[in-house]
Amino acid sequence: MNNSDQVYQQLLEKTLDRLQKQISDLERKNKGLRALTDKTAYDIEGYKNEYNDIVNTLKQYQARQEHSAIVENILNRQDKEAERIISKQQARQDKINQLATLGQQATSARYQRKINKMITRQQKKIRSLNKKHIRLNKRQRVIMLPKYYLTKRRNSLLFRQQGKVHVVEENIKDLALLKAHLNPENSIIDRLKSTIYDIKGNHYQNKLSRQQEILKNMQQHKYAVAIRGARAVAMPKRAIRNLRNKFTKEIENTKENTPEKETVTTNISDLLKNQEMITQDNMFQNINSNTTNLIENNTVDNDEPRIEEVTPIKEETAESLVNQIAQEPVRKEANPKLVPVIR
């Protein structure tokens, strides 16, 4: 580097240092000034608050002064009123005394009665003035002791509310007792109901046992089952399915798979409709109202039933079976009976 460059560089460096120094000084000063400004602002704020406090205090003081002036005026007025009342009372009393004296001196009874009436009237007026005085005293007391009377009034309201709460609490207790008294567990009627249900349940259980017993007997080969007559009915398939399920459930005492649930849109009367009259000839031969004849014609021996080859109903349809029976020679009755269906 040559001399001129060196000098130039030194010049620049010096300038930079100087500027740096000035910046630092100014920043320091600025910081100080800012702090001063902030402090001043705080002071100003503080003074303002103090000023406002004093203004409020002054206002309250003035209000109190005014209030006390007003109160003073009222009390003064009331004092004057009280003095007036007292003087009136005194005047009336003096008058009574005078009238009493006159009454003592009176000779005429009529005159005495008149004086007595006047005395009574004066006494009445004195009593009225007395009541007025008492009311005035009460008003003055309230003005002089506002806090005391305010507290008294608040306490009276509080006590009244507490009384109401107490009454409501007692009512709640009474209701709780009533509820316990009406508790179904303690009710005689419900105990009676449970007894009746127990009896019904036992009866139902006996019925189920009987069904089971009968079916079991009928299924045993030593018991013959003879069809002598029947009434035919047309039933919805759903009803038959439900009955089948119910019956098999009852006799087996086990749960079966329930069929798919169908929406029940019909009531009981709708379930049993489509009345149809069918003739006995189609199904049962020789069925008439005279069962004795039927029993006589019964070919099933009493000793031992003839159990021939069973016609399996699963293999043949019911209809073909009926036709088979119908095609066989029959002994037709004179008046075959119609078998109605359930309405």
Binding site: I214, K222, V225, A226, A230, S289, N302
Partner: peptide, 8 residues
């Protein structure tokens, strides 16, 4: 006696 009878 030894069975059941279904009557109308």
């Amino acid at each position: 006696d030894n069975g059941y009878s279904l009557t109308e």
